[in-house]
Simulated assay, not measured.
Amino acid sequence: MNKLLRHLLTLPHPVRVFITLTCASLGLIIYMVSFPLTHNGNILPVAVGITTWMFKKKGFFIYIIVGTPILLIYHALRIGSLLWSYTFIFSFTAGFLTLLLECFFVITLRELVDSADEARNRAQEAEKRVEVAYEQQYQLNQIKDQFLISMNHELRTPLTELHGYLELLYERYEQINSTTQIRYIEHAFQASQELQQLTYNVLDAMQIDDQGKVLLAEEFALAGQVENIVKHLSADKLENYTIQVEIPADLTAFANAQAMRHIVHNLLSNVFKYAPLHTKISIDAQQIYKEGKEQICLSVQDEGAGIPPDEMPLLFQQFVRLKRDISGPIRGTGLGLYICRKLVEAMGGSIWVESDGISGHGSRFSFTLPMMKQTSQNMNISMDEQRVSR
């Protein structure tokens, strides 16, 4: 019975109204058909109880307001007079008071049930919030552990190299020739550059989640910015790769130029890490319509090993590296693409990768930039000029 009564409360409102009207009508019909037999009002408490249970006070008052005039008119027609006997008046009044008492108990029971359900719902919501908080804490601990593991591995190697070469120069400066000294200095410099890049990535990842700073947008010619990035690449990169830029000269973006340079720089850095030497790198851009807006789609295509499709969904998360690269010789923090995603999203765009995972087919990283000023655009990340424009 308890389950049945609770189930009635979960029914759609039209269904409950239909059940209530049906019970009320049947109660009045049975009452009229059996009138004036003894205890002929026993059927009414059932209909009143169901109506009150369904709609509480509102249901009871509607039933009384509608049902009482019907009964009064029916009694007058059956008795043939508007004047009732004292016995009938007493019986009718006693029945009416009984219905009022029944209504009080049913409404009280319904309120207790509602309170219990509300308390149970609050407890379930609190339990869900605790579970969500626990899951978030677990994920934060996982990120922290991954960060510590990654930093322990990635920082130790260049630090060891830097310290080792500087130690050799310090202790055996007079014993080694100038050619070897220059070679040691070059190795030490390369190790320091790796340390600098790793440190910048960590600092950028920490700063990029600060929502209190503003990423200012401006109009700029995209071709000039990208060509400037390529122009300032190191000589060995320009010698070892064929970099092809195909961007219309009149293509103008409305975004943050520093952030755009940072994104392209990170994407090119990944290409230089993983793409074989003497392969082609293509950088192109075109105007597209996405989500009803004019946007620019800028892409960086390489001829590397590609990315397995099952690892693509996690590629732009923090500290994520491909399985094949974790134990490989190429070092990295797994933060570069995460920083790219946050910067692109801050400028109102999106970033994605296309690859079939076949070696030699490479990968194509693409991201969008606004072409026109967005009145409600929220750009809320600021990066240091010295790091963004490197």
Rank of each mutant, 00 (worst) to 15 (best):
N152Q: 10
Q146F: 14
A305R: 15
F365L: 01
T242M: 12
Y63F: 14
K323V: 13
N40F: 11
V300G: 02
A133W: 12
L315W: 13
I326L: 08
E167G: 15
N42K: 14
V17P: 11
I288H: 06
I107N: 04
R120Y: 08
S234E: 08
P276N: 02
L82F: 05
E131S: 15
E246P: 08
K342C: 05
I79W: 01
Q258I: 14
T157V: 11
S366P: 05
E227P: 00
P12F: 04
E311G: 01
F316I: 07
L72G: 02
F61E: 14
A119T: 00
L233K: 01
H153A: 08
I283M: 13
F147C: 07
G41M: 15
T38Y: 07
A123D: 01
I247C: 03
V264W: 10
Q124S: 10
L314D: 13
N228H: 14
G336S: 08
T179W: 03
I351R: 00
E111N: 15
M371R: 13
S150M: 09
L168P: 01
A205R: 01
L238N: 03
F316R: 06
I263Q: 05
V300H: 01
E303G: 03
N42P: 07
A126N: 05
R331D: 03
V226E: 15
Q258W: 13
P276S: 00
K342Q: 06
R122M: 14
G332R: 01
D356S: 14
L9V: 04
F254M: 12
S327T: 09
V271Y: 00
E127C: 04
F254Y: 12
R78K: 10
Y31V: 02
E294H: 12
L5N: 06
D284H: 01
K57G: 08
